[in-house]
Structures are given as structure tokens and as C-alpha cells.
Design a protein around this nucleic acid. Sequence first.
RNA 1: GCGCCCAUCGUCUAUCGGUUAGGACUCCAGGUUUUCAUCCUGGCAAGAGGGGUUCGACUCCCCUUGGGCGUGCCA
Length: 569
Amino acid sequence: MWYLGETHTRGGRCAPLSSCCLFFHRDDRFRRLWGDGSIKSMSVRVRFAPSPTGNVHIGNIRAAIFNWLFARHEGGAFLLRVEDTDLERSTDEAKATLREAMAWLKLDVDGEVMYQSQRREAHLAAAEQLKAAGAAYTLQRGKDEEAALFFQIPWTIEAYETVGPASLDVHPAVPVTISRGGIQYAVLSKKGKPVDESGCLAGFKGLRLLDSTGECLYALEPSLEAVQAGQADFTVEKVVRMEFEQRQVVFDDLVKGRMTKPLDGIKDLVILRSNGSPVFHLANVCDDAAQAITHIIRGDDHVENTFRHIALYHALGVTPPAYAHLPMIVNAQGKPYSKRDGDAYVGDFQAQGFDPEALFNYLTLLGWAPGDDREKLSRDELVAAFTLDRVRSAPSQMDLRKLAHLNGQYLAELPLETFMPAARAALAQQEWGREVDEALFRSVCALLQSRTQVYPDVATWCYFFSDELTYDPKGVRKFLQREGIGQALAALRERLADESFEAAAIEATIRAVEIEHEVPEGKLNQSIRVAVTATTIGAGLYETMELLGRERVLTRLDYAVEALCTRDE
RNA sequence: GCGCCCAUCGUCUAUCGGUUAGGACUCCAGGUUUUCAUCCUGGCAAGAGGGGUUCGACUCCCCUUGGGCGUGCCA
């Protein structure tokens, strides 16, 4: 538990968020661990917090998988929070899709599911708390509009560290403004044009504005309290240079290592829209605190948010959780999956007949590896091996062929009773596969399961169930249109007509025909295969013929001799 | 533009200063299977470029290039 000790000592300080305790008391797990209000265990609590949009993105589910794996490895809790504040998209159907995807991959959730839409009061209370503490202020955008509530990046918190003295050349034509909302100024572009910049007040500790002679036009410190309180603001003209003590926000990411971001590059953020609704940042932080999340494991598109979220935690009086940012999964072009990319949703993989365990296993291998040469790992092995320090920080792209290969290994191990229904469903996609003989189907499954990579491969089983065959032209040319083949097959047909039609007997018959017709041993097999199955690949020939049955084999041999073989005698 | 992050075979990855840079997928060749597939053996294939630090660098540092993310009263 190397990362728990120092970086994360949650002191059970959820007190400022009154509503969170309400939530906890409904959570049996919490009651068990911390029922008397004291901390007995530093149990890991992670969460998956998707927006239910009707589709679960593959990158999202990978984040869920890593969270789940981490929780199970640590013996902690894996929680689900449905961020359903977008009422238009968050339909019951979308939520059901989400739960189905998770159930399919066996991502079992601990405790009660939290629905963010029901947390509005808590979010508003948190906003109110910040406002009362002077950590938030209202600001009007337009004259006629209602004011939005901004979170003021705190002046000091323990997550800041000093970088050192900094100076910035400023465009003198654009005045520098100092207000509760931060510092606004313009720097010079390469061509000398003004480029607007702004940052929060806290980013400019010890700020001094200098003119071209080096004289100090304004110093922040004397009026700091008045500015912070919104009782004073300043506009300073002809500033050429700003000097200040640069500070940065720091956190130790469990996969990316030490992360820093200069405070002067961070802006105050809206937490309550002018219509009064809470924004993502507030809701997210608030709920993570309420669920007592200890580790946030999410996509690295959130790293920038983290710096501001940490400030929010501190302002709310809550110790921030530990963070682990996962690399993105990109498409075959190396670009992030967009909504237009097909095959990027969990449901698609399910529909395409991938085995959930195979997909689960494959997804763990994207951005993570156990460190030895194992690739096919069972759930238990994955849980045992999974640690965040082995997560890579470079993006990775999916390789469908490798997934298919892995899938094949999983399918081969499935009990026949599990394999059959799925194979049946795939077979039903084919016209000839809707109604098949049950006994034959079972036998064919038994014969071909081990060589099925993905369920749609069952389309190649056509020759067992249908007589409308499409002969592989290459196979016909290579194995049927050869001198003497027609005669040999014709002879075989005669002998098969009245001998036992069991695999071993069939094999013996074939060998005998080969000898009679002076065909090298085994060389007739592929010709027979093409004649009776129309393809060059398949299972063992003798078993295949036995399953096909005498009638079909004889008919097809007749057809091959008549229509496909070279007539050269 | 600025900020943050990333960089080993085509792809997924191993390597935590000293290796003939290993494995897997794909592809190719051979073997086993008197057939097909599996399987086995072998092969093709990588440290983006340039500077440092060091006896020694894929590994640490800097620069460049390339890519991603962020820069919303989206999440």
C-alpha cells in the first residue's frame, strides 16, 4: 500500500458536505467500516462515473475495468456513479445500456449506485458553503443576465509550491486589469501583436506592474484583501512588464508521476451557471467527496481539470484523493475515437460476437502489462497482478486481429453448452442457418468450436447445413482440375456407397482408392475436401464427412466429378 | 498562441544505466498432422532526430520534430 500512507490520509472529513453523511448511512459498506464515525480502515474506494448516453465507449469501459481491477486487487470498493445531469440524453434506456455493458463484462458494483441528478441539493449546498467562506463570487456576464457563481482559486493551499520569481513582457497598449476575477493582460506575439491572457489572482503573488522606465505602477499586495473581497479593482495603463512570484499546483499522479501546472495559467471557474445549475467540476468533486473516493482513476483527458479540482477540494475542506490518469485508446489511424468511429462501443463488440472475458482480458493489455510474458490471464490472475504503477502513459490503439486471436483462445475453452447458444445466434444471421437440425448442429459445434476465432466465423459452416455451395475457385483449380482426380473421386464415390460411413472406415476407403489410382498417400484428401465442402480449410476430413452423412457426400462427389473435375480421359 | 502530457518492431508490450533490445498479434518459410486447423521450429521487423551527463544510455537531462489533451456558463 505504498501510495496510501502519505499522499492520502483521508481524515473522514466529510463534515462540510452535510449531505454526504446522508449518503453514507445508506451504504452498508460504509457502516461496516466507519459506522461509529471513526476511521478503522484505509480501505480503497474507487468509482466509475460515466454519463449515460446510450452507448458505452470502449475507452470508458477500459477506465471502468482498471478501476474495478484496482479495487479488487486492493480489497476495496468499486462504486458506480451515474452522471445523469444531462436529462435529455440520460434516458432510462441509456442507463439500462450502461448497466448491461457492465454486467456483460462482470464489473460488479459495490454499495448503492449514486445518481448525480439526485444530488443537486448537495451541489448547491457546497456552492453555498464556498460562497459563505468567501471562496466564490458572483459575476455577471451581460447586463441583463443573471450572475454565475465563480470559484476563486484559493490564495494558499498545501498543494501549491513556489517556482520562483517570474516576469512577463506585456503589451503596453492593452491595460492590465486586476479584480476579484483575476488578472487580465496581453502579452506580445512573435509579430508584436497583443495576445490576451488571464489568470487567477493567486497566480500572481507579489505582483508588480512596471512601466518602460522600470518604475512600479502598481503592487498587488497592499490592496490584496480588498481585491479578493471584490471591494476594489484596478486598471493600469502603459504596463510593459509584470513581475511576480510564480507558484504551481502539484500532485503526484499514480501513473504519470509528479504533475505541475503554473497557477498563473489557471483561471477561476464557473461552478453555478447563471441559471443556477451546477457545472461538472462542482458536481464531480462534490460527489467524489461524498462517496469518499480515495483514488480517481480516469482518462488523461482530465489531467488539466485535476489542478483545479484539487483547489476545489481544499476550499471545501476535503483532502483530495489520489489520482491515476490513464492513456487514451486511439483508433487505427492513431487518432482518438470520435463518435463517428464504428466498433468503438462495448455493445458493438458484444454484437460482433466477442467473448466478454476475452474483451476484458484484451482491454487490460491496452496500457498495462503484467511485466512477464503472460498475455492470456484469468480474472483472478489479473486481479492479483494489477497495479497502477505498471500502467503506461502513452496512448495505445486497438488491434482487432489480436483481439480476435485472444477471443479464439477463449472460445476454445468454453463449455460446449455455453458455446452453442452463441454459435446458434451467429448462425441465425445466415439464411441457411435459421433452422438447423439440433443434433447435427451440436456435432458441428463440437467439431469446430476449437477453431472458431469469433462467432461470425460460423458463416463458414455453410456446407454442413446447406446444399447451395460456393466453390472456392482456387481450390477447384488446384485440387479438382488435375489429371486423374475425377476418376479417383468417382471410384471413391462407388466404394463409399455401400461401406460403413464412420470416420475410420472412410479413411481406410480413401487410402485404398489412393493405392488403386496411384495417388500418393494423403494427396487425395484436399480434393475430396473441396468436392464435399467447397473449401480448402475445415476440420478433420474424415470426421467432417461422417457428419455430412453418406447422402450429401455422394451427391457432392457426383457433382464434382460431373461439373468440376477436368474431363481429360 | 500559451499550458500540460506522450514517444521501443506495422500493432500491443518487456526493459526500472551494462541484454545478440525479449514476448505476443500479423505476415513468410519449414516441420508435425498420411488431410485441414491447432501445434512446434525458424524468419522479417523497433529505441523519431540532435546535443549533453556517464567508463557505459532505449533507460537520466536539454533542445528539435511529431502526436494527444486542455485553454467553455460541455462533460
